[in-house]
């Protein structure tokens, strides 16, 4: 089953289940801010517009409502997140 992640009009398929959502996004060449990558600094937070994510590590950072910490979650369904994708990238 392939899961589609849509970020700022750019969609990609999230195939590798071993990666965190942050790694999956970075794998597409999209930069997301990060510091700890362990769920305690909160820097990589992204706004979740549609869908649900599953945390494999319980985050310690404060996460405002409707936001997610991609460094410690995966997605099991199609999701839409807010973010900035470089203009040269086109949807697959």
């Amino acid at each position: 089953m392939s899961i589609i992640v849509k970020i700022d009009n750019y969609s990609f398929m999230c195939a590798d289940d071993s990666m965190s959502l942050l790694e999956a996004i970075e794998d597409q060449g999209i930069d997301v801010e990060y510091q700890c990558r362990q769920g305690f600094c909160g820097l990589c937070r992204l706004k979740l517009v549609e869908g649900k994510v599953t945390y494999f590590d319980e985050p310690i950072a404060f996460i405002p409502e409707n936001y997610i910490l991609p460094c410690c979650c995966k997605t099991k369904e199609d999701i839409v997140i807010e973010g900035t994708v470089p203009k040269e990238k086109t949807s697959v």
């Binding site: 700890c36 305690f40 909160g42």
Partner: peptide, 10 residues
Amino acid sequence: EALHLTGTQH
């Protein structure tokens, strides 16, 4: 410090 700022944000 990343942990401390999370503390004060909470």
